[in-house]
Design a protein around this nucleic acid. Structure first.
Length: 426
RNA sequence: GGAGGGGUGGCAGAGCGGUUGAAUGCACCGGUCUUGAAAACCGGCAUACCUUCACGGGUAUCGAGGGUUCGAAUCCCUCCCCCUCCGCCA
């Protein structure tokens, strides 16, 4: 959420952001400012009466002590009368504040000036491309064929046991996944990230902190009885790690990496790219999360992006980097890159990483601040995260890129120390 | 799951209906002293919000929410968390 003070001072900027993000009506800002005004009046009124009541309560105490019961009784009577009025003012203040807060949750983050203004994914900019599309002496097959040939993943039995989108990985398929997780975590650790194993379920407060609630609850599986949600990404527990904390400035930046399964209901997602490993309800991902000083968050974004891209280079997978446009970047981000790998068997790009700077948007919701060196007021810090990387589509790309004429699959050298084998099949 | 104990400021730890936002100690910051340091002494030291040009003033917060009362950290109810014992168990 945005700072109410910022909205008071820069209503035009906020309106422009709503417009650019195509996420609601700019009128919202006017309604917020009106509500804010009424709320502040209500606060003042309530507090004034409360001040009066507090003062006479103290007088009553003094009178009682000195035995002036009659004088005390008078004041007591007056305070008793005041009570209902006080309750009224309080509930008015509360409801105004709740309304105001509700509206504040509807305001999107402000896009960074470098973000292209656009309406849809068409307006995202390809800002970088690495590697060549491979050429084959045969027609490359899609990964679902290769998976079937080598019995790497069992979709049908997964559907029987759990449902569509919950596959079994087996044999070299399972081993490949585990190797990738290890490779990603080890690389991140070497680059200064602290490895985390977070809880795989989260409570409501945490879901609210990173912005899954109130709007995107359809995304998550819910354990209703216990008020818990299965994590849609490690971003949620790892970012909430420092919720309601004040971190000494000297400890910044805090960098974490975490491997977790991710659970997504993907309600209402249809279309062409849902086959095979392209879209699942449960998938593995290594997530990178950073807590940084506000002045350094854009440097951190580029470094984080680099951390993710280095993995693709090591895996010899051609990729491109997209700078997301205002219309396609999401509600909570200030700036976001997507990384996509080329899938020769499907002849399309597959998104394997999304790297974002949230600036103070998440941190304000979660109340995560740092204490400046030498003291002073706590300041809201900046949070960032990026996938490093999402597994299934990487697996798909590796299989498709490594396939040989005889159907065997050669894996990139960087992976051999983790897999223990260099070829799958024939 | 059952029985009991407990949650107070960065930490430790008092308070158990009336100037208590909260004693005291430690830590931390500033100062005096000292050639320097330590010790000693003096002062400062929570968070959020409202209000004020400013100095300042005010409100709220002692796990969370509700209640009793003129007045609650202190009494009552519900929930959460931690500890001890028992049960169950990877």
């Amino acid at each position: 959420m945005l700072d109410i003070q910022f909205i008071r001072d820069n209503p035009a900027v906020v309106k422009e952001a709503i417009d650019k993000k195509r996420t609601g009506s700019p009128d919202l800002v006017d309604r917020i400012l009106e509500l804010d005004h009424s709320w502040r009046q209500a606060v003042t009124e309530h507090q004034e009466l409360k001040t009066e009541a507090n003062a006479s309560a103290q007088q009553i105490g003094a009178l009682m002590k000195s035995g002036q019961r009659d004088a005390a009784q008078k004041l007591i009577a007056r305070n008793t009368e005041m009570k209902s009025r006080l309750a009224e003012l309080e509930s008015r203040e509360r409801s105004l504040h709740a309304n105001l807060n509700g509206l504040l949750y509807e305001i999107p983050n402000i896009p960074h000036p470098t973000v292209p203004v656009g309406r849809t994914e068409e307006d995202n900019q390809v800002v970088h491309e690495w590697g060549k599309h491979p050429s084959f002496s045969f027609t490359p097959r899609a990964h679902w064929d290769l998976i079937e040939q080598h019995a790497l993943v069992d979709f049908d039995r997964g559907a029987k046991v759990s449902g569509a989108g919950f596959p079994f990985y087996r044999g070299q398929g399972a081993r490949l996944q585990r190797s990738l997780v290890q490779f990603f975590l080890d690389t991140a650790t070497r680059r200064g990230y602290t490895e985390i194993q977070p809880p795989l379920v989260i409570n409501e407060d945490s879901a609210r902190g990173t912005g899954q609630l109130p709007d995107k609850e359809d995304l998550m599986y819910e354990a209703k009885r216990d008020g818990l949600y299965l994590i849609p990404t490690a971003e949620v527990p790892v970012t909430n790690l420092h919720r309601d904390e004040i971190i000494p400035e000297e400890e910044l930046p805090l960098k974490y990496c975490a491997y977790t399964p991710c659970f997504r209901r993907e309600a209402g997602s249809h279309g062409k790219i849902v086959r095979g490993l392209n879209r699942l309800h449960q998938f593995d991902k290594v997530e990178l999360v950073q807590f940084v000083h506000p002045e350094r968050s854009y440097d951190a974004l580029e470094a984080l992006r680099e951390d993710a891209e280095a993995l693709l280079v090591a895996l010899e997978l051609p990729y491109r980097r997209l700078l997301m446009s205002t219309g396609d970047m999401g509600f909570t981000q200030a700036k976001k890159y997507d990384l996509e790998v080329w899938s020769p068997g499907q002849e399309q790009w597959l998104e394997v990483s999304s790297i974002s700077n949230f600036e103070s948007f998440q941190a304000r919701r979660m109340n995560i601040r740092y204490r400046p060196d030498g003291g002073g007021k706590p300041v809201v810090l900046h949070t960032l995260n990026g996938s490093g990387l999402a597994l299934p589509r990487i697996v798909a790309a590796l299989l498709e890129h490594g396939q040989q004429a005889d159907g065997s699959i050669v894996l990139p050298a960087a992976l051999h120390p983790w897999t223990g084998f260099d070829t799958i099949g024939p």
